[in-house]
Write a protein that binds this DNA or RNA. Structure first.
Length: 286
DNA sequence: AGCCAGGCTTGGT
DNA sequence: ACCAAGCATGGC
C-alpha cells in the first residue's frame, strides 16, 4: 500500500542530536519536526515515544530508502559496547544517548564536505541551501504534508553545467573550483564514486584524496557518513581538542601522536566513537 | 614551514 | 552601530 506517512519503530534514537550533529547540513527544525530532503523526497520527521514518524509529499511503496538513510535497523547497543571503557567515552555516551550516524548519498556528502573546509556549521548550511535552490530540482510541495518548496541536492551533472562564478555566488569562495572539478570528473565518468564501495578503507581514502580540496579529514567524513566505513575517524580541530583535553590533560600531545592514539584506541566503530566525542564536546563542554 | 583562500559569527568598544 | 578577531581545512 502506497502511503505518504509511516512510523519507523525505533528506540534509542535522538533525531535532533543526529540531524544537528554536523554530519549533515540540510535539515531544519520547524516546531517539533525536522524538514529535509532525502533523494527526491521532501521529508518531515517527528520524534514520538513510539519511534520516528515520517511524512513525504509523494506516496511511498516502501520505506527502505528512509530506514537505510536514518540507519534505524542497526543495533546501537552492540556498537556502544565495543567502545573503549574509559571515563571520557562513558560520559560522552551517557550525555548523547541515541545519537546515530546517517547513511548519506556519496555525492551529496562529498560535495557538502568539500564546501565545509574552514567553515562553521551555520555557514555550511547556508552555502548548501543556496546551492540546492539554484542548481537542484524544485520539488513540488503537497499541502498539507509540506507547505514550503524544497530542492533536491544538485547532481554532479547539474553542478558541472554551472560556472565557477555562479558557484562563488553561493558564497563558497575558494571552494568553488574544487567542487566544480569534482562534479566534472564524476559527470564525465573519470571518477567513480561507486568504485569506492569495493575498496578497503586505506584504498578508498587514497582514492577520494585524489580530488582537489579533499584531504584526510574530508575523505574520512565521506567514508564514514556515506559509505559506512565505521573505522574512519575524522580528526578536525574539535576532535583534536577533545582528545587533548579528555585523554592527555597533563601533557601536550602532538597532532600525529593524537592521530595514532585515535587509530588504535577506539576500536572497530571508531567513527561512531568520534561522533559521540564530537557531539559531547560541542554541546556539553565549553 | 607558514601563509593564503570567503564570509559569517562573536566579542569588544 | 561598528570593527577586529575568530573560525578551521587543504594546497602550495
Amino acid at each position: 500500500m502506497a502511503a505518504t506517512e509511516t512510523l519507523l519503530r525505533v528506540r534509542d534514537y535522538d533525531l535532533a542530536a543526529t540531524l544537528d550533529s554536523g554530519q549533515v547540513f540540510r535539515w531544519r527544525q520547524k516546531e517539533n519536526s525536522w524538514i529535509g530532503v532525502v533523494g527526491k523526497n521532501s521529508v518531515r520527521l517527528t520524534q514520538t515515544p513510539a519511534g520516528i514518524f515520517a511524512e513525504t509529499d509523494a506516496p511511498q511503496k516502501n520505506w527502505d530508502w528512509l530506514r537505510d538513510y536514518l540507519q534505524t535497523e542497526i543495533e546501537l547497543g552492540k556498537i556502544l559496547k565495543a567502545f573503549p571503557d574509559d571515563a571520557p567515552m562513558r560520559n560522552a555516551v551517557a550525555s548523547c544517548r541515541g545519537l546515530r550516524l546517517l547513511r548519506q548519498d556519496p555525492w551529496e556528502c562529498l560535495a557538502s564536505f568539500i564546501l565545509s573546509s574552514t567553515k562553521q556549521i551555520v555557514q555550511i548550511r547556508q552555502i548548501v541551501a543556496l546551492l540546492c535552490e539554484r542548481f537542484g530540482d524544485r520539488l513540488t510541495p503537497q499541502p498539507p504534508i509540506s507547505s514550503e518548496v524544497n530542492y533536491s541536492f544538485p547532481s554532479p551533472e547539474q553542478i558541472a553545467a554551472a560556472t565557477e562564478k555562479e558557484l562563488r555566488a553561493c558564497k563558497m569562495g575558494f571552494r568553488a573550483p574544487n567542487l566544480l572539478a569534482a562534479a566534472r570528473q564524476i559527470a564525465d565518468g573519470k571518477f567513480d564514486l561507486e568504485k569506492i564501495r569495493r575498496l578497503d578503507y586505506a584504498e578508498a581514502r587514497a582514492e577520494l584524496m585524489k580530488l582537489r580540496g579533499v584531504g584526510g579529514k574530508i575523505a574520512d567524513c565521506v567514508l564514514l557518513f556515506a559509505y559506512g566505513f565505521d573505522s574512519a575517524f575524522p580528526v578536525d580541530v574539535w576532535i583534536e581538542r577533545a582528545l587533548q583535553r579528555l585523554y592527555f590533560p597533563r601533557r601536550r600531545a602532538s597532532e600525529p601522536r593524537l592521530r595514532r592514539f585515535a587509530a588504535t584506541h577506539f576500536g572497530p566503530h571508531a567513527g561512531y566513537a568520534q561522533q559521540y566525542l564530537f557531539h559531547y564536546m560541542r554541546t556539553k563542554l565549553k
